[in-house]
Structures are given as structure tokens and as C-alpha cells.
Design a protein around this nucleic acid. Structure first.
Lengths: 88, 88
DNA sequence: AAGGGCAATATCATTCTTGATCATTAATCC
DNA sequence: GGATTAATGATCAAGAATGATATTGCCCTT
């Protein structure tokens, strides 16, 4: 499933063309990103929740040189399935 | 951020009322769930991807009895941040 | 406006993911 | 459709998630 499939769903409930439907999808995604950028959690009951948590991992690995690499700390997105997605 | 905020975004681009906007949001979420139910991956470039992977964990813990518990295998959703969500 | 019901939290050991990079595959822009 | 560019897979070690359950908090339906 890709972005286009989401736009198709919007078209089912409106008379918007593909371009406008995609515009709305992008606007929604942009808002979701903006929310996480601001360290705000996203919670959609019955689907899933997203939260921003500090990244503590301190080491990674360079596959070519087969050596460890320091990883700068930062943030990451923590995803958690909601009720309806728990048992699939 | 909650489901209502997503509906608000749809209203910005349409003349739909809250009820209809929420109907569309639910329809989209339903489609996403249906896709994962069918073991189909979701890939939204620039945002994130979701995939269904087998659950291999075999043990959990009962916090009250402080004992280990067998966990039945199954499936779970694997979330992966996209390019724009990597560096937040 | 408000209650019903789902989500967050804490706990511990085992299992799994994170993280950089290059090549390959595929989503998305035009 | 073609071209562009992001996502996936592989690797290894250390850090983090998983999983059950009751309680608290709050989203969401009526």
C-alpha cells in the first residue's frame, strides 16, 4: 500500500481529483511530522500511537571496515500498535 | 495530536463538517489496518513504512507473581521511520 | 457533556532492534 | 512511463522492546 492508495480512499468520499486528494494526504502527513518535530505524541485510539523518545544507542557498525562506529545521540520515533492492530 | 486534529486538516481543504471529515479519517485507518491484516506492507516515502513480521519472542513476565510466562507466537507490526522522520 | 473503554505505566529476562554504508529495488515526481 | 531518489538488506554489539496485568488517565463515542 502506498500514498496513492490513501488518496483513492479520499476520492471515495468526495468529488476531489487525484491531485487534490494527494494534496490533502501530504498536508496530513506534514502535520503528523510537525507534531513529532515538536516532541508531541500522536495517539489514534484503536490504531496506534507514536512518541518521540531519546536515542541512547552509542554504537553502530561500519559493514565495510567491520568496525564499531560511534553514533551521535538524538531522538527516535517509538511506534506502538493499538488494540485493533495487536492481533492480526 | 489525536484523530480529531487529522480531521481538522481535511476541513482546511474542503467544506466537509467534522462528522464527514472523521468518517474519511476512519475509512483511511480502516484501509491501513486491512492492508496489514493481509500481510501487505505500507510504504509512504518520506514519512514511514509499516510491515508485518512474525513474533518470535517466547517469554514474558507476570509482574504480580514475578514469574516468567510463555508467550504464544504470532505477528506484529514493524514500524520504520522514513527520511524526513529520521532526524527530528 | 460525560462515561466507557482503550492506552500508559511498571516489572524482568530473553529476544530483537538500532546504527552507518553500498547496491538493489521500488515509490514518487514530472 | 522515465527519471529521480528514498527504502531495503546485510553486518555486529550494545541498548531497548516484548509480554501479562491492574490501575490511572484520557481519547472517543453516545
Amino acid at each position: 500500500m502506498i500514498k496513492n492508495d490513501i488518496a483513492l480512499e479520499i476520492e471515495k468520499y468526495s468529488d476531489f481529483n487525484r491531485a487534490k486528494s494527494l494534496l490533502i494526504v501530504d498536508a496530513i502527513l506534514s502535520n503528523l511530522k510537525k507534531s513529532l518535530d515538536n516532541d508531541e505524541k500522536i495517539e489514534i485510539r484503536g490504531f496506534a500511537s507514536f512518541r518521540v523518545v531519546p536515542k541512547k544507542s552509542g554504537f553502530g557498525r561500519d559493514i565495510r571496515k567491520k568496525k564499531q562506529i560511534r553514533i551521535k545521540k538524538g531522538k527516535r520515533i517509538k511506534f506502538r500498535s493499538g488494540q485493533d492492530l495487536k492481533n492480526i
